[in-house]
């Protein structure tokens, strides 16, 4: 997931450039504040790996709107590896860290943040993980891309961009906190493969 690799089929095409991502996140940040009627009790939990930097970016934007908010104090990471329903179908993956903000999540408004919403199984696992960690008042879901093909009754509350895709295609999100291309950090969403 580091460097966009040449893929059989169509060449990778950029569907969101850096500026598009910025705009989408700014919009989502405002939507979150609007839905929550302010920043009180907000907790943003990113799902590793790319959900976490997205949660950080959203928190910074929320902090920019409401200076009383310390972005770091409302951001956390929620690993769902140990709750996945496909563990036995894949090689073993080591879990990643789960870090909750100091306030915890009990009675909070938790916004789960992920890069791509696809089958919905990751979010299902996240909801299970959340239940073992505490009892939020409300749980919402924010994603940068919703590419469809849901296998569970799950939908996002905040979507950066709806991307109609074929299931043969792969949606890759690259964020500068994690990804580089040719040594340079990149921020983009690309679609690979497909017919």
């Amino acid at each position: 997931m580091t460097v966009p690799a040449p893929h059989a089929g169509a060449a990778p095409r950029v569907v969101l450039a850096e500026a598009d991502i910025d705009r989408a996140l700014t919009r989502i940040a405002h939507e979150i504040l609007e839905a929550n009627k302010g920043a009180s009790d907000l907790v943003l939990l990113g799902i590793p790996r790319r959900g976490y930097p997205l949660a950080q970016r959203l928190a910074r934007r929320i902090g920019a709107v409401d200076p009383s908010v310390d972005p770091r104090a409302i951001t956390g990471q929620l690993d769902v590896t140990l709750y996945r329903d496909d563990l036995q179908r894949n090689p073993t993956r080591p879990p990643r860290a789960t870090q909750l903000p100091p306030t915890g999540i009990d009675e909070k408004v938790v916004v789960l943040v992920d890069d791509v919403l696809y089958s919905g199984r990751t979010i299902r696992a996240a909801l299970d993980a959340l239940a073992d960690l505490g009892r939020p008042r409300i749980v919402r879901l924010a994603v940068l891309v919703d590419r469809g093909h849901r296998e569970l009754p799950i939908r996002a509350d905040h979507v950066g961009k709806n991307l109609p895709t074929s299931s043969a295609e792969r949606v890759r999100v690259h964020l500068e906190e994690i990804d580089t291309a040719g040594g340079r950090p990149v921020n983009e969403v690309v679609i690979e493969g497909g017919a």
Binding site: L82, L87, Q88, R89, N90, P91, T92, R93, P94, P95
Partner: peptide
């Protein structure tokens, strides 16, 4: 136990 058992047996 997790690392030995969680993954599929085909891996």
């Amino acid at each position: 136990l997790y690392l030995l058992l969680a993954g599929g047996t085909h891996d």
